[in-house]
Design a protein around this nucleic acid. Structure first.
Ligand SMILES: [Mn+2]
Ligand SMILES: [Mn+2]
Ligand SMILES: [Zn+2]
Ligand SMILES: [Zn+2]
Lengths: 141, 141
DNA sequence: AATAGAAATGAGAAGCTTACGCATTGGCGT
DNA sequence: ACGCCAATGCGTAAGCTTCTCATTTCTATT
């Protein structure tokens, strides 16, 4: 239950948090901007302000419930933390995002960190290119 | 000579472009924000506006003379393109940046792109962590 | 169930980085 | 040296995100 999820994250159970978590869950295959979430709330006639959306997403991130990624271009995107780490490939034309995880790359990163004396807390790996999908150039928005 | 560099990039040789290129060269070991470059210009009593700094840096990037990176946090940073690709490790405490290039990772990326049917144009790999340098916590700025 | 205290929210304004508009200046080919 | 078009400087605006603060909503406790 969402309530448990939020409570376990150390957050008070409030209507905005419930609704936002719900939206992220229902769009688990997407990577949503704060604005995307806000628009979805409007569609559902929820009276939740954009500031609250940003606040809640940031709290979810801090609590480890969600992840924030900065793909090229303006807005940050969010997705629920599914427990398993992954990185992203983004199509520069249509914006399509695919996910991957490569054990070899992850191991190399650890090795590199060690060589430089760093203790790695996190990393960001994003591949940019063209998806080559026949109907790609129909870039949304 | 800087003039040749700028001309070969297809850009008119102007004082702002010369000065900015000069600053980037003299700080080749750093990763400078537009503001950093601007402050450096002020120190040298150059009457160059911040808008011009942003414009020129963007032109340098488009011309392949410079690269722009988005490390965590606010500003983008710039560095001259030294011809050889590299990625970055950033200390979350002191802001120190180290560079690396791992052939294995690069190859894996190509493989992953292929598997997903993407044509990769570019990529961004940034490791975040702690540098473990004894005098690290003296975070600048 | 009612109450009180603390935390969260909504709305708007502010902050920060970056881009833009336009009058003026300045390279550069002639 | 001249003149044209590009580039610049300044101020302003845009886009995204965070902040402020009066008001509302949780939650623990009666
Ligand atoms: Mn993802
Ligand atoms: Mn670098
Ligand atoms: Zn595409
Ligand atoms: Zn450090």
């Amino acid at each position: 239950m969402d309530q448990q999820t939020i409570r376990k994250a150390g957050l008070k159970v409030t209507l905005p948090r419930m609704k936002i978590l719900e939206i992220l869950e229902e769009n688990a295959q997407r990577h949503m901007t704060a604005e995307d979430v806000y628009k979805e709330l409007l569609l559902r006639d929820e009276e939740i302000g954009l500031a609250t959306v940003y606040r809640v997403l940031t709290q979810f991130e801090a609590a480890g419930l969600a992840e924030r990624h900065h793909f090229e271009g303006g807005q940050a995107v969010f997705e629920l933390n599914r427990g398993e780490h992954h990185d992203h490939i983004v199509c520069l034309t249509c914006g399509k995002v695919e996910e991957f995880m490569d054990e070899t790359i992850e191991k190399c990163q650890a090795k590199i960190a060690k060589k430089h004396g760093f203790t790695i807390a996190d990393h960001s790996l994003i591949l940019y290119g063209e998806c080559n999908n026949p109907k790609c150039p129909n870039r949304p928005k």
